[in-house]
């Protein structure tokens, strides 16, 4: 690099240099990077403990360059609860997929949110079980074909249920401080997602913060990466709408500003 050059794009300190095992076109790598950038931006790498799930991101403990704990399937929020109750001074995040968080780990996520545990949950929703080979997930869209819903998810005749909207579900609880959903489907979306993740981490000391990413799974959807993003944009966003559903701090600031005015 010449002395006059300015680095506009660097490798996040909180991401290790280990090549990931993710499939071509998968957006987990993007999501990892956003998390690592948030940790760097807040300067908390040396007091961060990450909890990884079971699922495609099971090996995330290799990819983040901070202390990492591998949880059993769905229990990351319980493990994070143990971490923060023992060491409230640490920063703690969980990184979970849709099967892990919204199916087997439903009890753990709901109750960690309800207790307002001061953790940041990163939820990667791509509507399918990737690691195990493309089975139906709790967030699989109605009609979507998977290896365990071969004729398409059928909530009526086959009793396969409907896609679960986690942010909306958590938004019924009194506890959480921050709840947001953002897609990773375009560059503009990723820029917005970066702000959302940083906001979540910055509010962690106040309580439970939750970011859902709408992502893709080109491999198990049987699509090319670009096609997968287009499909997600067209089909997933209408079921999983984007937005900040709750920001208690912003609401409080707004309320106090209104009071002063």
């Amino acid at each position: 690099m010449d002395a006059n050059d300015t680095a506009v794009f660097t490798y996040p300190r909180s991401l290790s240099r280990t090549p990931t095992h993710y499939c071509p076109g998968c957006l987990h790598g993007v999501a990892h990077r956003l998390v690592a950038e948030a940790i760097d931006a807040l300067g908390v790498r040396e007091k961060t403990v990450g909890i990884c799930p079971v699922g495609c991101s099971v090996l995330a403990y290799k990819y983040f360059d901070c202390d990492m704990i591998e949880a059993s399937h769905g229990r990351a929020p319980a493990v994070a609860t143990g971490v923060k109750r023992a060491r409230p001074d640490l920063v703690c995040f969980t990184y979970q997929g849709d099967g892990d968080l919204a199916s087997i780990g439903m009890a753990e996520i709901i109750h960690a949110a309800n207790r307002n545990e001061p953790i940041t949950v990163i939820f990667y929703n791509n509507a399918i079980y990737g690691m195990t080979g493309g089975q139906m997930a709790p967030t699989t869209l109605v009609g979507m074909k998977t290896s365990t819903s071969p004729t398409g998810r059928d909530p009526i005749d086959r009793g396969a249920g409907y896609p679960i909207r986690m942010v909306e579900l958590l938004n019924t609880l009194e506890g959480p401080v921050y709840l947001a959903r953002q897609s990773l489907l375009s560059s503009a979306d990723i820029f917005r997602a970066r702000r959302v993740v940083q906001r979540a981490f910055s509010l962690q000391s106040k309580g439970f913060t939750f970011v859902e990413f709408v992502g893709t799974c080109p491999t198990n959807w049987g699509m090319a990466p670009v096609e997968a993003r287009e499909w997600a944009q067209k089909r997933m966003i209408e079921v999983f709408p984007i937005g900040v559903f709750r920001d208690r701090e912003a609401e409080a600031a707004k309320a106090s500003a209104a009071k002063e005015a």
Partner: peptide, 20 residues
């Protein structure tokens, strides 16, 4: 913490033990 289940309780123990 009164956990949501015994499963969660044992995993909370896992987390607390993991930080020593």
């Amino acid at each position: 913490v009164q956990a949501e289940s015994e499963v969660a309780a044992s995993n909370m123990c896992y987390g607390a033990a993991a930080v020593g």
